[in-house]
Computed example of a mutant assay.
Amino acid sequence: MRFPVGALILLLSVSGLAHAFDLQQLSDQLAKPSVIHGSFIQEKHLRALPQPLVSKGTFVLAKDHGLLWLLKTPLQQDYRISAQGIARRDANGWQLLPNKSAGAEQNRLFLAVLQGDSSGLQRDFELQLQGEASGWKLTLIPRSLLLKQVFTQINIDGGELVQKIELLETQGDSTVLRMQDSSASQPLSEAEQHDFAQ
């Protein structure tokens, strides 16, 4: 007995729907690891400069604490991004930086992206997701007036974890952030726990 073509098409489309990778699955996937360690390369492309400004360093993302962003080159500078805001380490320890609205918004956004908080992102962006769990691309189109003044769109690529974030700014500048060697296998070290606790 031959299988009717119409029934086959219907079966394929239904099974395709059942296995479609959606925002909730992406959120769940990115929210799973409690700690992620990795290194990053950030390229800032400015219209006025022929070459991008490149900075490199390491990061620690802890689900219950926030993000340690440890810049190694071109200069050494440690940052901590958490619900309390951004802090920078100096000779006296961690100092909370003034809460500038666009900067604060950007950091809240950055944490939401890395932690897979799609409900937080959906408040400010229209989200378009393509791909599957092992390889996906998420496009964020700003909804809020404040974000529309800063970004035209944000592209995020990843698999099990976020691998690349591209920020396209309204004035033509852009930032590409590549997260490398990301691993969710190590817990926080004592030093890292101390950094988050201060």
Rank of each mutant, 00 (worst) to 15 (best):
A7D: 14
L10F: 15
S13R: 08
S15E: 04
L17R: 14
A20N: 07
D22M: 11
L23I: 07
D28K: 09
G38D: 06
S39L: 04
F40Y: 14
K44M: 05
Q51R: 13
Q51Y: 07
P52E: 12
L53G: 05
L53T: 02
K56Y: 04
K56R: 12
F59V: 00
V60H: 07
L61D: 05
L61F: 09
K63D: 06
H65K: 11
G66S: 03
L68G: 05
W69L: 02
P74N: 07
A91P: 02
N92H: 02
Q95G: 00
L96P: 01
L97N: 07
P98D: 06
N99W: 01
S101G: 04
A102E: 11
N107D: 01
V113G: 05
Q115T: 13
G116N: 06
S118R: 07
S118E: 08
S119K: 13
Q122S: 14
L129G: 08
Q130A: 11
T139L: 10
T139C: 03
L140G: 06
V150H: 03
D157G: 01
K164F: 05
E169N: 04
T170K: 15
L177Q: 06
D181A: 15
S183K: 08
S183D: 13
S185A: 14
P187C: 13
L188G: 10
L188E: 10
E192S: 11
Q193G: 11
F196I: 08
